[in-house]
Amino acid sequence: MKKIVVKNGLLRFILSSIIAFIILTLFCVFYYNVPPQNKPLDGTTDYKWKSNTFYSRATEGFALGKTNNDGYVNDYDFNDKTDIDVLIVGSSQMEALEVNMNETTSSLLNKKLKNQNVYNIGISGHYFLNCVSNLESAIKKYNPKKYLIIETSSLTFDDESLIKTINNELEEIPFKANGILGILQQNQFIRLAYKQLRSFIDKKSINDEEDILNINNSSNYNAELLNKLFIKIRNISSKTNIIILYHPSTTIADNGKLILSSESENVEEFKKLCNQNGIDFLDMSDRFKQEYENNYLLPYGFSNTTIGTGHLNKYGHQMIADELFKIIERGK
């Protein structure tokens, strides 16, 4: 390599910094490349990703993919003529930036349900109540013919949030792509550095998009308010079947047994409330336990971070897709 001699120290530093910045940005194209956020005008979610944008993730799992023209993670583009049979709404678990595009629940379900379109508008930070808040707009835009699937990893809801959601007053997820922040997040290295710096300062490992799952020690919800919420959901999506997909968090106990957060949550009552309102409830607990005991497979975690916690891995998506498929097939 030809030796470049720049005698002025400051100039040398600036030149080197620019080259180093370019190299690090190129590295991030494949290491941590999250699309910039966009504000959807249709209100289907609080935000979505920039459309037709390549993404990669090696900070949790190893995955590559591309958002569709609508700014979500799907195998196909969306246009006014697209007939959607199954609509999935949910958090980063359904968005699935940590697994390859062909390993996500929506993609797997799409393949299983031949001649039916499964469309996924899962997006980071959109927990159950956020999804319900945006449901009316989502149903209006995508108009699913057969099924609406709402994903959740927790059955614990505080009264205040439930009331706000019922009254359409739930706060939106703060939009982070305005102004300087928006410009800066166009560069992936700056984005990675910001994430790292924040974690360093907090001195805790922050997973991508603040979407770490916590094991709930106790379940808590007001059944009356929850019932009202289900009535609201039912009214919004009156023409389609609704499935609430519940995938509990897992942890491995010291004796090697798998502990599920569902064990400490009031699942039965939740299920009863769902059924009263004509909503199917899919609890993944048994399948998770069975896969662990028979095949030693865990639904969460990756080979480069932790296992048993974090986001759904390809096995987790596969298990969920299988179980959803069974319900949909049964309902035919």
Binding site: I4, V6, S16, S17, L24, F27, F189, A193
Partner: peptide, 18 residues
Amino acid sequence: DTVWGLTIFLVVLGLIFG
């Protein structure tokens, strides 16, 4: 004291941080 040397060092620092 060379551009490449300094560049490599800064890249390493960036990688450590990232």
